[in-house]
C-alpha cells in the first residue's frame, strides 16, 4: 500500500463540514485539487499537514507508505510543503536555510559539502552565504524547493506554489518540481485554481462551485 492515502478525510469547523475528500495518490503521481478561492483548499492541506487551527477538526484517516499519519505531530509526518510564497527564513543565509532541513547527525565538512552540492544542483553554486532577500524570484523558488527536498520527504504538498512566478519562470519551475517528484517517486497533492498547473496526465478533483 504505497503512496498517500486520504481515507474519507472530512474537515469540520465548529461541527460544520468544510471539505471532504477520499483519494489515493500512488508514488510519482500528482493529484490536483481545484476550486475557487475560499472552498477550503488550503484548509485541506493544513489538515494533511496536521496544522489545522483551533476549532477545526479532521475526520478520517491519513496514511503514507503504510504509515499512519493521523495524530502525528507535523514534524514527524515527513511531508514536504511549498506555499505560494517561498517563505525562506529571512534571518538565515541561503546555506543556512538549506542546512535547516538537514539532519543534525550530518556535521562539519560533510554538512557543508551537502549544502554546496545542493546549491550546485539548482544552479546556485557559491550562494551559501548570500542573504535570501537579495535573490531573484526564480532563485528563491529553487532554494525553497531544494530546502524541502533536503528534508527527504515522502510526499509533497503544494499550495499554489507557482502562482507568484511570471509566465516564463513558471513553466520552468513547474517542470523542475514535477520532474524531481517523479524521479524520487513522491506522491504529490497540489491545490490550485489555475488549470495550467496540472501536470500532463494528472488526475484532477474539483472542490465546491
Amino acid at each position: 500500500m504505497n503512496g498517500l492515502h486520504l481515507d474519507n478525510i472530512a474537515i469540520t469547523a465548529g461541527g460544520v463540514p468544510l471539505v471532504a475528500l477520499s483519494a489515493h495518490i500512488p508514488p510519482g503521481e500528482t493529484l490536483t485539487v481545484m476550486g475557487p478561492s475560499g472552498v477550503g483548499k488550503s484548509t485541506l492541506l493544513a489538515g494533511v499537514m496536521g496544522t489545522l487551527p483551533a476549532g477545526f477538526a479532521l475526520g478520517g484517516r491519513l496514511r503514507l507508505n503504510g504509515r499512519e499519519l493521523t495524530g502525528l505531530p507535523p514534524e514527524d509526518r515527513r511531508l514536504g510543503i511549498l506555499f505560494q510564497d517561498e517563505l525562506l527564513f529571512p534571518h538565515l543565509s541561503v546555506g543556512g536555510n538549506l542546512a535547516f532541513a538537514l539532519p543534525a547527525r550530518l556535521r562539519g565538512r560533510a554538512r557543508r559539502a551537502r549544502i554546496e552540492d545542493a546549491l550546485d544542483r539548482i544552479g546556485l553554486s557559491g550562494f551559501a552565504t548570500r542573504d535570501p532577500a537579495t535573490l531573484s524570484g526564480g532563485q528563491k523558488a529553487r532554494v525553497a524547493l531544494m530546502r524541502m527536498l533536503l528534508a527527504d520527504p515522502q510526499a509533497l504538498l503544494l499550495d499554489e506554489p507557482f502562482s507568484r512566478l511570471d509566465t516564463a519562470l513558471r513553466a520552468r519551475i513547474r517542470a523542475l518540481v514535477f520532474g524531481l517528484a517523479a524521479d524520487r517517486g513522491l506522491p504529490v497533492l497540489l491545490v490550485t485554481h489555475d488549470g495550467e498547473d496540472v501536470p500532463p496526465g494528472g488526475r484532477v478533483v474539483q472542490l465546491g462551485g
Binding site: 496544522t51 505531530p73 510543503i81 510564497d85 535547516f100 533536503l150 528534508a151
Partner: peptide, 21 residues
C-alpha cells in the same frame, strides 16, 4: 505562521521553531 508550518515540514519540533525561527 506558515513559517512554522514550513519549519515543521522540515522536521523541526515546536521548541526548535520557537528558538530558531
Amino acid at each position: 505562521t506558515r513559517h512554522a508550518t514550513v519549519a515543521a515540514a522540515l522536521g523541526a519540533g515546536p521548541w526548535r521553531v520557537f528558538w530558531t525561527v
